[in-house]
Simulated scan of single mutants.
Amino acid sequence: MTMYRTSYEVAQVLERNREQLAGLCANSWQSRTLHALRKCRTAALGGHIDRCDNPGCHKLHLSYNSCRNRHCPKCQGHKREQWIRAREAELLNVTYFHMVFTLPSELNRMCLYDPKSIYGLLFGTAWQVIKGFSSNPKFLGADPGMVAILHSWGQNLSLHPHLHCIVPGGGTTRSGKWKFARNKGKPGCRKARYLFPVKAMSKVFRARFVASLRKEFPPHPTAFYENLFKHNWVIYCKRPFLGPEQVVEYLGRYTHKIAISNHRIKSLDNNNVTFTVKDYRHGGRKSLLRLTDAEFVRRFALHILPKGFVRIRHYGILSSSRKKALLPLLQQVLGGPVPNGRPPLKHRRCPYCQIGIMVTVAVFDSRGPPKAWSDRLKNSAPRRTPQKA
């Protein structure tokens, strides 16, 4: 996958504040993550030397290793593409619905205190709501599926935990047959709006989440939980995707997205960071936000997930334990994914001739390439380009 350099990077902010990173983080895991991002594709992580296999070229190319961290702005492209291709093969020829479950700001402090538990409850409760409404014969009366993706940020990098969910418009009955949602699940159905009643879902979501919260954190005073019922919890439901192509496009934007990408950063001056933000309350109008380095790093660190926490989860008929056997059968009945015409993932092309494939001939650590290879690189007139390790 081709990578494009940007004028400014998150890594630059981290590098010029490397001595203060630990003090801007809530724990050592966040600090370790930021230092990994700071070193990404630099000599500090070592690298490798590749040679073009085209007989007419044979040029050498120096690449520094990537950190491969899921929070890194420079390491998501290839992973995202691999994940999307895998999901494309699992698409059914049905209507898909998009729902967003959002936690109120009153729970932000608890998210900072114990993100693993709170985010885990968010995943579990969202699935309970979807499964509960789907199993009700009044709405569907079938076993559903769901892909859920956790985002914890808003446009200004503040804490804004929410779950993006993709739900097929139907499910499997006890006999194993597919059942479409009433006038909503068939592909191309123009009457389709929302899969289930939004207001009813919101009330159930709030009640179930607070009930689970009481069990998980019993010492909290009753007034705290009562305060959570003073405001409506909104489940945002978009109109259904028009087809499988839209589902894939959506997945491409959201699956491996991080708190802020490098292209949003517009300037780094006087220990300040200026980046673009969208105001979705006013039609997505763009503006610029200026933060000090310290505040930018502090906000960015808020969205570093706990070690080992899974932020993309599959449920029901789309879970890993069921989809291998079930989805091929459903695709025979409903139809499989629509061919997208995209070329398969390929090996990295030579940046010089654009014909040959780069083959690794040497690897090195942070001390740099051996002298013999350094001399060969000079003779080969290499140029460094931002390629993924």
Rank of each mutant, 00 (worst) to 15 (best):
I258H: 04
F217L: 12
I357R: 07
K186A: 13
K199Q: 09
P369K: 05
N65K: 00
V359H: 15
E81V: 13
P218V: 11
Y4P: 07
C353P: 08
L345Q: 11
S158L: 14
P218R: 06
G141T: 14
T172S: 09
T274W: 11
S152H: 06
A142K: 07
N232M: 07
R383I: 07
L37T: 06
M201I: 04
S366Y: 00
I235Q: 05
R383E: 13
D143E: 15
N340F: 09
L37H: 02
H231N: 15
G188E: 05
P370H: 05
A301Y: 12
V248N: 08
V10N: 04
H61Y: 01
Q246T: 04
V13C: 10
K177R: 08
N262V: 03
Q155G: 11
N69A: 10
W153V: 13
Q354T: 10
K184G: 08
L157M: 08
P73L: 03
K79C: 02
L157D: 06
R208A: 02
P55K: 14
V198L: 12
R253I: 02
V333G: 07
S28T: 13
F364M: 05
S212E: 15
E9I: 04
G124W: 03
Q82G: 05
W127S: 12
T360A: 14
P73K: 06
L213Q: 01
C40S: 12
P187F: 13
R311E: 01
A192V: 00
Y119I: 07
H48C: 12
H303F: 15
D279I: 09
I235M: 01
T292D: 01
S321W: 06
F139T: 08
C111E: 05
C67R: 06
H231Q: 11
H162R: 01
H162S: 10
S320T: 00
P219R: 10
G124L: 00
H71K: 12
Q82Y: 08
P55F: 12
L345S: 14
P115S: 09
T274V: 06
F209K: 09
S287H: 13
P144S: 06
V234K: 04
E81Y: 11
N27V: 12
D293A: 01
L213P: 02
V277F: 02
L92C: 14
S134I: 02
R190T: 15
E81T: 07
L122V: 03
T42M: 14
K230Q: 10
A142N: 10
L150T: 04
A126E: 11
L326D: 07
A11T: 11
K378A: 11
F133H: 02
A301N: 01
M110N: 10
K388D: 05
H314Y: 01
G46R: 02
N54T: 00
I49W: 03
N270F: 14
K131S: 15
S261V: 14
M1G: 06
K307N: 04
G171C: 01
N69I: 03
V13D: 09
S152A: 15
E216G: 10
L62E: 04
A11R: 04
A89L: 14
V10R: 12
R16W: 00
T222I: 01
H35N: 06
A200K: 15
I265R: 09
D375P: 08
E249N: 07
L305S: 00
F364N: 04
K266F: 08
E90V: 06
N65R: 11
P369H: 04
S66Y: 05
F300A: 05
K257G: 05
G368M: 10
L289P: 12
K257R: 10
G23A: 01
D365H: 09
K74W: 08
V277A: 04
L91T: 13
R281V: 12
